[in-house]
């Protein structure tokens, strides 16, 4: 199956539910749940494994109700053994299953980093293409719920450093619903980062919304004056910033990266070549982060197109604190994005 193209099974399902193309109101959480449920129905090799995904219904209630529908074998509660059950996901994937491993938060994923980096990401190359790992690992990321310094970080940029895996950051309902199935078709490990502030986000989505391609960035708002490049939870702050800028007659173009590995250089460079100015917004830390990588690629590939040095809005170089005012001060906000965009345009900041 080619990326982004529905396979025959998908097409058949789509035809069966053609009368369900009316938009329905749902949350990001429900969109993720629908994606898991859909995958479970379509492919008996798919199963969900993680801490409290079954009886509890998921730490963020994503998998609520799924164990009742699919049973405890396929909605598999795991003990607090991140490395153990992530590695079990690696083994099951090698043996032909299509596991979805849920890690409660990105901070906990560090306990599974050995399996993600040393096994999942390396096995195909190290074994001379004998053993691929078609594993999907989902986890929550990001700050905004006052969960303090061990539940709030944004480490997806770290994972994007690793060859052998793919890193996705669905920011919209459509992507929350559509990326999972495409990721499950991928013959290699795919990590999906769900920003925790998005789970309650409501919106409309076609009842029959289906798989989406996962390799391209999306222009979420077109503009000609400055490119605002972001992903995940920061997308909505960036769109808010674009509205504020529009009120000052600045037309910002908002790029939603969607995939952090691979990065869609073509979409980034095309936008920057048009606007000649760029600001990168990343909830990760600035030093050595994905924002630095994007910045470097812009400079490497579009240096002569630029009218100003690119700017960055990242999290402050500190652990995420608990009190709301400090937490919010630590992460990107629309006001900071507006200031950075204006600075890039030479209009103060």
């Amino acid at each position: 199956m080619r990326k982004g193209q529905p396979d025959r099974l998908t097409t058949g399902l789509m035809q069966q539910i053609a009368d369900r193309s009316e938009p329905v109101e749902l949350s990001y959480r429900e969109a993720v749940r629908a994606a898991i449920r859909d995958a479970m129905i379509r492919d008996e090799r798919v199963f969900l494994m993680g801490e409290d995904v079954g009886r509890y219904g998921g730490c963020y209630a994503v998998s609520k109700g799924l164990q009742a529908e699919f049973g405890p074998e396929r909605i598999r509660d795991a003990p607090l053994a991140e490395s153990g059950f992530t590695g079990a996901g690696v083994g099951a994937a090698i043996a032909g299953m299509r596991p979805i491993v849920e890690l409660m938060t990105v901070n906990f994923s560090l306990l599974a980093l050995d399996q993600i980096l040393n096994s999942a990401a390396t096995l195909r190359h190290m074994s001379g293409n004998q053993f691929g790992v078609p594993l999907v690992i989902r986890m929550a990321t990001g700050a905004g719920r006052q969960l303090a310094a061990q539940h709030s970080h944004s480490l997806e940029g770290w994972y994007a450093h690793i060859p052998g895996i793919k890193v996705l950051a669905p920011a919209t309902l459509e992507d929350a619903r559509g990326m999972l199935w495409t990721a499950l078709q991928d013959p290699d490990p795919v990590l999906i980062f769900e920003n925790i502030v998005l789970y309650n986000m409501m919106g409309k989505l076609a009842a029959d919304a289906g798989p989406v391609e996962i390799a391209k960035a999306a222009v979420r708002h077109a503009g000609r004056d400055v490119s605002l490049i972001t992903y995940g939870g920061s997308l909505w702050k960036t769109l808010e910033a674009a509205s504020l800028l529009a009120a000052e007659n600045i037309e910002a173009e908002v790029i939603d990266l969607r995939s952090l590995r691979p990065l869609d250089d073509a979409t980034i460079i095309a936008s920057v070549s048009k606007t000649r100015r760029a600001v990168i917004i990343d909830e990760g830390w600035r030093s050595g982060g994905i924002s630095a990588e994007i910045y470097a690629r812009i400079v490497e590939q579009a240096f002569w197109e630029l009218d100003a040095p690119p700017g960055r809005v990242c999290s402050e170089e500190t652990p995420i604190p608990y009190p709301r005012h400090l937490e919010q001060a630590a992460i990107p906000q629309a006001s900071k994005i507006v200031a950075a965009a204006k600075s890039a345009l030479g209009r103060g900041g």
Partner: peptide, 17 residues
């Protein structure tokens, strides 16, 4: 120790099938 979780997963696949 890194191979042990993988062995568990290989056996899990066999168990489920």
């Amino acid at each position: 120790g890194g191979g042990l979780p993988m062995a568990v997963g290989l056996a899990l696949a066999d168990h489920m099938r």
